[in-house]
């Protein structure tokens, strides 16, 4: 069997005395939608930071597409095809929706040392950007400034920006955060369409989403992987039920 697209081994990070990640191992083959779940404080955010390159691990390695990227900085990982969305919307707030996506297209279209031609009239940037917005259902909002978009629209735009970098792996950090039920359903439908064509790592709190989308699930508690497997196995796992699902079930009645 060929090497998984993303392979994480022994990944460890502590903040002071707090263990945020302890010997985490993941193997995610191309095309899989892999969810990472865990209660608050389980280290999900740290894992996103480690995978995206914002946090340097103390030990362990990250291999992506057969390459060791443990020491590679954030922009380099993006150039290799590892894209991410942010849990707390992180966009160019004073740019239009289309500008946001076009800049992501531009970032993967060679260097940007072009000084005199108007980038907003550059069909090589605008057309793919417009297509990405249409695909995500934001075509009619292309010229609206990001700070005038609704929260749900901003969440969609997060995904469109990530997709515009033509990623091979999409790291989704709680894409449902703050969405209403209609918006959540639309987001799930959209992510379902992406499944198969794109490898996804889905960090998510919302259990319905996770079980609707994930091919496999990894459960984190206190920075450790306590279970990993297909949804049915994880749902049946006693340690998981105790640590996480039981608590969730109770909270959601």
């Amino acid at each position: 069997m060929s090497e998984p697209l993303l392979q994480v081994a022994g990944l460890t990070k502590r903040f002071g005395g707090v263990i945020a990640a302890e010997a985490i191992a993941l193997a995610i083959p191309a095309g899989e939608c892999h969810a990472v779940i865990g209660p608050n404080g389980a280290g999900k955010t740290t894992l996103v930071g480690l995978l995206a390159g914002e946090i340097a691990p103390e030990r362990g390695s990250i291999r992506f597409d057969g390459r060791d990227i443990t020491a590679l900085a954030v922009p380099g990982r993006s150039q290799l095809g590892l894209a991410r969305s942010f849990q707390i919307t992180s966009l160019f707030a004073d740019f239009t929706a289309l500008d946001n996506v076009a800049l992501a297209v531009q970032a993967h279209d060679g260097h940007s040392f072009r000084f005199l031609t108007d980038a907003r009239r550059d069909a090589a940037l605008r057309e793919p950007a417009r297509a990405a917005l249409e695909a995500i259902g934001l075509g009619s909002r292309a010229d609206a400034r990001v700070d005038k978009l609704s929260h749900g629209e901003q969440r969609q735009l997060e995904i469109a920006v990530a997709l515009a970098t033509k990623p091979r792996l999409l790291l989704l950090d709680e894409p449902m955060a703050g969405l209403g039920s209609d918006e959540s359903a639309r987001m799930v439908a959209m992510l379902r369409r992406l499944k198969g064509s794109l490898t996804m790592v889905l960090i998510e709190h919302d259990m319905a989403t996770v079980f609707a989308l994930a091919d496999r699930i990894t459960v984190l508690v206190y920075g450790r992987v306590i279970a990993s497997g297909d949804p049915a196995a994880v749902r049946a796992d006693a340690a998981v039920r105790e640590a996480y699902l039981g608590e969730q079930d109770a909270r959601h009645g």
Partner: peptide, 27 residues
């Protein structure tokens, strides 16, 4: 001309949100 070029948008993007800029692949 410069501020509306590809270069200029990178400069303005870096002012607006450096973290996002890095995440889409630009140092």
């Amino acid at each position: 001309r410069v501020v509306n070029s590809r270069f200029g948008l990178v400069i303005q993007g870096a002012r607006s949100n450096e973290r996002r800029m890095r995440a889409i692949g630009i140092s």
